[in-house]
C-alpha cells in the first residue's frame, strides 16, 4: 500500500503534544501508569527485600520513615510487597486485555459476516453475559484450582462477549456503508474486505475497550484473591494482601488500605487513560458514553 502507510512522522508527534495539552488528566494518568510499570519491572532494585520473607520487621508495625508502608501480621515489609504486587495486577490486566480483545475480535468479525454462525454465536454470548462476570470467574477458578493461568483464563472468558458485541456492532454498521458495497462491486474478496475496510474501523474502539478490560481484569483479580478464589496465596498480589490483612483491620488498617489504594490508583489511571483515548479515537462512542 502506498500513501496510506507513509503518513509523515511529524504529524504523529504533533498529535501526541495535542493529546497532552487537550487532555491533561489522561496525560497524568499515563505518567502514573508508566511509573507503576517501571516500579513493577524494577522491583528488585528499588530498595526492596524478599517479599515472602517473614519477620523482616516487627509484626504489624505502622508506616514510618524507615518502613514506608509498615509491616503486616507476619512481619513482612509491606512496601516490598506492594511494589511486587503491582507485577501481578499488571500482568493480569495486560494478558486478559490482549487475550479477550484478540479472541473477541476474531469471533466478532466472523460472526458479523456469516449470518448462519451469527445466531448461534450470539446466543452463546448472551448466555455468557447473563452470568455475572465475577461469579463465572469464581466458578471457573473453583473447579480448576488456583493458579495464575486459571485466574487469567477465568477472567478472560467473561470479558470476551463484550468485545464480540462491540466488534459485531461495528461490522454490522460498516458493512452497510456504500464504500464497502463499492468494494464488493469491484470484485474484492471477502477476507480482503474484512481486513482492508472493516478491521480498521474496529481498531480504535477496541484499543479503548482494551483499556477498560484491563482495568476490569485487575479489579476482578483482586476481588477473586480477596475472596480466596484467586491468585495462590503465596504470590504477593494486592488482593491476597488485603484478604490476609482483613481480620486485623481494626488494629492494623494499613495492611488493607495501602494495597487497596495502590490498586485503586492503578485502575483509576487505566480508566482515565481509557476515557482520554476514547475521546481522541472514537468520538462517536465518546458522545454516547
Amino acid at each position: 500500500m502506498s500513501a496510506a502507510d507513509t503518513v509523515p512522522a511529524p504529524r504523529r508527534t504533533g498529535a501526541l503534544a495535542a493529546f497532552v495539552l487537550r487532555r491533561p488528566f489522561a496525560a497524568v494518568a499515563a505518567l502514573i501508569l508508566i511509573a507503576i510499570v517501571a516500579a513493577a519491572v524494577l522491583a528488585p532494585w528499588l530498595g526492596t527485600v524478599d517479599p515472602r520473607k517473614l519477620n523482616v520487621l516487627p509484626r504489624m508495625r505502622p508506616p514510618s520513615e524507615t518502613a514506608w508502608f509498615g509491616s503486616d501480621q507476619f512481619g513482612r515489609d509491606l512496601y516490598t510487597r506492594v511494589v511486587y504486587g503491582a507485577r501481578v495486577s499488571l500482568i493480569v490486566g495486560f494478558t486478559v486485555a490482549l487475550l479477550s480483545v484478540s479472541i473477541g475480535l476474531f469471533i466478532g468479525l466472523v460472526s458479523g459476516y456469516l449470518r448462519r454462525l451469527d445466531a448461534v454465536v450470539m446466543r452463546i454470548m448472551d448466555g455468557l453475559m447473563s452470568i455475572p462476570g465475577i461469579l463465572l470467574a469464581i466458578g471457573l477458578v473453583a473447579v480448576s484450582g488456583a493458579s495464575m493461568k486459571t485466574v487469567i483464563i477465568a477472567i478472560t472468558i467473561p470479558e470476551i462477549p463484550r468485545v464480540v458485541r462491540l466488534v459485531r456492532a461495528v461490522v454490522l454498521s460498516v458493512r452497510e456503508e456504500p464504500y464497502v458495497e463499492a468494494a464488493i462491486s469491484v470484485g474484492t474478496r471477502l477476507p480482503l474486505i474484512l481486513v482492508r475496510h472493516i478491521l480498521p474501523n474496529c481498531i480504535p474502539p477496541l484499543i479503548v475497550q482494551a483499556t477498560y478490560v484491563a482495568a476490569s481484569a485487575m479489579l476482578t483479580e483482586a476481588l477473586l484473591s480477596f475472596l480466596g478464589a484467586g491468585t495462590p496465596p503465596e504470590i504477593p498480589s494486592w488482593g491476597n494482601m488485603m484478604a490476609e490483612g482483613r481480620i486485623f483491620f481494626p488494629i492494623a488498617p494499613w495492611i488493607v488500605l495501602i494495597p487497596g489504594c495502590a490498586l485503586a490508583l492503578t485502575i483509576l489511571s487505566v480508566n482515565v487513560l481509557g476515557d482520554g483515548l476514547r475521546d481522541r479515537l472514537d468520538p462517536k462512542i465518546a458522545k454516547r458514553m
Binding site: 500513501a3 463499492a182 469491484v186 474484492t188 482492508r196
Partner: peptide, 17 residues
C-alpha cells in the same frame, strides 16, 4: 460522504478494482 473509505487514499480506492 460515505462512498469512499475515509481511511484510504483516493488512488487506493480507484485501483482497488
Amino acid at each position: 460522504y460515505r462512498s469512499l473509505n475515509p481511511r484510504r487514499t483516493v488512488g487506493d480506492s480507484i485501483i482497488e478494482g
